[in-house]
Design a protein around this nucleic acid. Structure first.
Lengths: 349, 349
DNA sequence: TTGAAAGCGCTAACAC
DNA sequence: GTGTTAGCGCTTTCAA
C-alpha cells in the first residue's frame, strides 16, 4: 500500500532507522542499539541518535522489529469484546505493560474451541511476544501446544500446567461466600444455574463454581436440598433457567445464578411473569459487572477484581518474555458484594 | 523469542514458504503466487503447492508479508472495549472481511484525543492494511493526516472529508424520532442530556443529536420549553443530570438521555430517591444496547443497527485497500424502539 | 565503542 | 508458466 498524500499528491514514506542513522551520522547498528537501549553505546552517541529520532519523528516499524526480535506487542484473546469484566482485565494489563513500551491488541474469538483456536493461531502469526487468553474454551492439550509456541498466560482457568501461567479468581471460595450468605439468611432450598459446556474441562470457572456450590451446600448439611439447573450463562439462558425453576415442584427460596448475565435473564423472565426479586426468591450473581449496581437491578454478586487480574496477567507475561520458564499460578480472592436482591427467608424471599 | 517445546525440549521452528516450496519441489516465488492466488500459475502447480501447505500445516507469517505487501489485517480503534454497540460493529466488520482472508485487531484508545492518537499511530506502525475508527475524538485535521498514511474509515462521525470514508447513523433523524414520539404522547417540557465535550467537533454524534433535538423541538413550536442539561454520557453523568433536572423550577415531563448509559444513570438516581420511571417522567435513551431490553429496565431507545454499520465499514475498508480513492459517506437510518419508559403525559409521566 | 554485513519470511520485478 | 534475485526495516553476530 503506497499511500498518497491527499493534498500534495506526494507519497508519504515512513521514516526508517536508516534515515535516523544518516541524520545522526552513525551506523544503523548503532541507531538500533540506542532504540533498544542495548548495552555498549556511549552517552554522546545516545544523545545524538535520540535527538535525530525526535527531530525526524521516528517510529519503529513493528513488523520489521518482529522479524528479528520482539514486536513489543501482547495479544489478548476474548470471547466477545462487550464483556465489561474483560474490559477491566484489558485495562489492568495495559497499565503494567505500557510503561515497558508494550501495547495490547485484542481479538474476539467467539465461544467455541474451533474459532478460538483459529484466532489464537492468527495472533501467533502476528508475532506477538506473548498471549493472554481470557477464559478460553479450548482443551488443556491445545493450551499446552500454544504454550510451546509462545509465552502464555491464561486468565480464568485453574490450570496447573507447567508450561504456562494462569491467574484466576478463587471460584470455589466465591461460590462458598454466596452459599454461606444465603444460608445465614435462612435459605435451605437453593438452586445453582450451571453453564452447560460442550467440552468439560475441569479447570474452567464454570466447573469450579459448580463444585464450590455443591461442596458448600454439603458442608452446611444441605446436599439434599441443593438443586442444579443446567442452562447457559447468557441472557436467554437465564430466561430458560427461570422457567425451569418455576416448574419445580418443591419451590426454592434462593437462586445463585453463577454469572451476572444469567441473573439478568432470570430477573427479566420473572418481571415478564409479574414477579419481582427478591419477592419471588432471593437472587445472586457473579462478576460484579457494571450494570449490577444500578438502582432497578441492585444485584448481590461476587467481585473478582478484574483490574488486579489484568495487572497480574500483564506482569506474568512480561516475566515470561523476559525468560522465566517455571510456571506461576495465581489465585485471587473474591469479595461478596451485598445488595438488595438477597434477603432473609423469613421476609418471604 | 525462541520458544522451547516443553515436552521434548526441542525448538519449534515455524514452517516457512521455503519449506513449502521445497516440499512441493517448486520455487518460493511460485509458492508465493499460489498463496496470494496471483495470476500466472498452472492448475497442476496450484494443486501441488496447496497440498504441501496442508501437509506441512503452513501458516503465513504476517509481519513478513506486511514488509512487502499486505498484512491482511484491519485495525479497529474503540474508546473502550466494553461498549456493546462496538461489539456489534466489530462483528459486522468481521463478517464481511473474514471471507477475504482478513482479520480484525482491536485496540482500546481511551477517551481523550492524545491517547487515541497514540493508539492510532501504534496501529499504523503495525502495518495494518486499513483502519476503522469508532467515534474518534481526535480533530478533523488529525483524521486528514491519518488518512494520508493509511486507508481510513470512520464510524459515527458525520464527516464530509474527501480523504476518508465514513459511516454513521442519521443522528439528527434519531433525535427527531424521539422528540416526535414524546410530543405525540403529549409532552411539551422535554429535557435533553448533552455530552459536554472538550473539543467541539461539529461532526460528532453528540453534536448532531443535540442539534437534532433542538431542531425537532423548534419544528413542533416547542423551542421555549426545550431544556438542555450539560452533563456526560456515562453512568455518573446520568446521576448528575437527574439531580440537575430535579432542581429545575418548571418540571419537565420527559427526558431524552442522548445515550442509553446516561438513561441508566438517571434511572438509578431516581431509584435511590424512591422515584420510578415513567412515574417521575418519561425517559428515552439512544443505542438500543443489550441491557435496555431486560424487564426491570425496558427502556425506550433508538436502534442504530450496529452490525450493519460494521458490515458497511468493512466493505468500505476493503474497497479502499483495493484502490478506491474517491470518498464514500454512508448514513444509516435509525429506528425508534418503543418500550415502557415513555408514556402519555396524561397518564402522569 | 562503533560499523559492516548477513538474514528474518515474504513479495515483486524481471529473466528464462 | 516458472525460477532467480533483490530488498522491505530491523536486529545481531562479528570485525575493526
Amino acid at each position: 500500500m503506497t499511500q498518497i498524500n491527499a493534498e500534495t499528491g506526494a507519497r508519504v514514506r515512513r521514516v526508517t532507522i536508516v534515515d535516523v542513522a544518516q541524520h545522526a551520522g552513525v551506523s544503523t547498528a548503532s541507531a538500533s542499539k540506542v532504540l533498544r537501549n542495548a548495552y555498549g553505546v556511549s552517552e554522546a552517541m545516545k544523545q545524538r541518535v535520540q535527538a535525530s529520532m525526535d527531530a525526524l519523528g521516528y517510529r519503529p516499524h513493528r513488523p520489521a522489529r518482529g522479524m528479528r526480535g520482539r514486536t513489543f506487542t501482547l495479544g489478548l484473546l476474548v470471547s466477545d469484546i462487550e464483556n465489561p469484566f474483560f474490559s477491566l482485565i484489558a485495562d489492568g494489563i495495559t497499565s503494567v505493560v505500557r510503561s515497558q513500551g508494550y501495547e495490547l491488541l485484542i481479538s474476539p474469538g467467539g465461544y467455541d474451541a474451533g474459532s478460538q483456536n483459529a484466532v489464537i493461531d492468527a495472533l501467533i502469526d502476528h508475532q506477538m511476544d506473548a498471549l493472554v487468553l481470557i477464559g478460553p474454551v479450548v482443551t488443556g492439550a491445545d493450551l499446552e501446544r500454544i504454550a510451546g509456541e509462545i509465552p502464555l498466560v491464561v486468565v480464568g482457568r485453574h490450570s496447573r500446567s507447567a508450561a504456562l501461567d494462569s491467574v484466576s479468581g478463587d471460584d470455589e471460595l466465591g461460590s462458598a461466600l454466596v452459599v454461606d450468605h444465603l444460608v445465614a439468611l435462612g435459605h435451605r432450598r437453593i438452586a445453582f444455574v450451571a453453564n452447560q459446556q460442550d467440552s468439560l474441562e475441569p479447570d474452567r470457572p464454570e466447573s469450579v463454581r459448580l463444585a464450590g456450590f455443591v461442596e458448600a451446600m454439603a458442608r452446611h448439611g444441605l446436599a439434599e436440598s441443593a438443586m442444579v439447573v443446567d442452562s447457559r450463562w447468557s441472557l436467554t439462558g437465564g430466561h430458560e433457567a427461570a422457567r425451569v425453576i418455576a416448574e419445580t415442584a418443591e419451590a426454592v427460596t434462593a437462586v445463585f445464578a453463577g454469572a451476572d448475565v444469567t441473573a439478568f435473564g432470570i430477573m427479566s423472565e420473572l418481571w415478564e411473569r409479574g414477579l419481582r426479586v427478591p419477592d419471588a426468591y432471593s437472587l445472586a450473581g457473579y462478576d460484579n459487572s457494571r450494570m449490577t449496581s444500578i438502582g432497578p437491578i441492585d444485584l448481590t454478586t461476587v467481585d473478582q477484581s478484574g483490574f488486579e487480574m489484568g495487572e497480574t496477567a500483564g506482569r506474568l507475561a512480561l516475566e515470561r518474555i523476559g525468560g522465566r520458564t517455571e510456571s506461576r499460578h495465581v489465585l485471587l480472592r473474591p469479595r461478596l458484594i451485598l445488595r438488595s436482591t438477597t434477603r432473609s427467608v423469613a421476609a418471604g424471599g
